[in-house]
Design a protein around this nucleic acid. Structure first.
Lengths: 186, 186
DNA sequence: GGCGATGTGTTGTATATTCAACACATTCGG
DNA sequence: CCGAATGTGTTGAATATACAACACATCGCC
């Protein structure tokens, strides 16, 4: 199932680079981080960086995606049952991810982060929908995933903007019926 | 002076192996540690191990030598003035090294450890002697280094064996005049 | 005795990483 | 304006590491 035959050198080097990037991100803003900084911190050659990543934005993408996936994977990806509880825990993971980002300095890259979150959500939702509604049209399921991911992300933005910090689970609870049953089911 | 142009990959891999070895040494005895254990812990290929070390005994040698050198180097190697203070601090470093070993499990390899300590001491002493008595015969300086290293090591064994734990500096103090001036100077 | 399981050490080949060098862009100060 | 300094991204050749396979030794077990 897992198909893990990645060269150990690649796993090691990618981890070195990503760890170095996360470390540097806690020290200065993204715009002030150079590729040379990263390779120096990771103690690898600069050419090796470009062997793994297109550029520093590609690294930002993949780093954030990975951190986000770590937050999500364990509890949801394999359960493959898209019910209220799963949606709620996914929403919780997103808010936690957003909070963890706010301690680092990625100001000015909110749109990138937003896109990454939506992309990952869409993949997960589509995966689950295919499992439980395999007879539906593929295009329909895809578009449903898109709307769900935008919707959940939007809710997390709204949650972040709210003054009083309600627990994420409580915050999302009121719209769960809508998500599960649509307007008619409310 | 330093001539440091070691391939970063070599430095990285040697450190991985040595760290893995030290970690395993704290978990079980040397005789129960296999090469496979080490390479698994270090997350490197077994063939790579043999690229760097002849066998596991070679690793033991080099690991202990390095740990010992770390204890010694900073304060003595470059001062190159072999006086009472330096001898005292070297003795202190040796005793600390021996104590740090006693927490790990290298039972049955006391002779190997002893040889490593003596070898390193001999190198350091010879280095210092050449600096401050360059007109003396080379063979004389070499033999002096040998006797000094055996003597200091013997003293550290005696210190370890003693019941009441006197501070190393106090322990060695009484024989410093002998070391500096010989029997006639006591 | 024999036999599987485990560990050692080696080898050839594929792949990842290093290194030095290059062209190009941007910035900064005289 | 120019030149020096710094950062980006690429390339080719040298080197280190991974991998699979092999021969050999040792050990416990039936």
């Amino acid at each position: 199932m897992k198909e893990v035959k990645v060269d150990p050198r690649i796993r090691r080097t990618r981890k070195l680079i990503m760890d170095a990037f996360i470390e540097l991100s806690s020290q200065k803003e993204f715009k002030d981080i150079t590729v040379k900084d990263i390779t120096a911190e990771a103690m690898i050659n600069r050419a090796t960086f470009y062997y793994h990543f297109e550029d520093i934005y590609d690294l930002l993408d993949k780093s954030l995606s990975e951190v986000l996936l770590v937050n999500l994977n364990c509890e949801t990806y394999k359960s493959s049952e898209l019910n209220e509880e799963v949606v709620s825990s996914i929403f919780k993971a997103i808010t936690e991810f957003q909070m963890s980002l706010s301690t680092r300095c990625h100001r000015g890259y909110e749109d990138t982060i937003a896109r990454i979150i939506r992309e990952q959500l869409e993949i997960i939702f589509y995966h689950m929908l295919v499992n439980q509604r395999s007879n539906d049209d593929v295009q329909t399921l895809k578009l449903t995933s898109v709307m769900l991911s935008w919707g959940i992300y939007g809710a997390s933005v709204e949650w972040k903007r709210s003054i009083e910090k309600v627990e994420p689970e409580a915050y999302i609870k009121s719209v769960l019926p809508f998500i599960m049953s649509g307007i008619g089911g409310m």
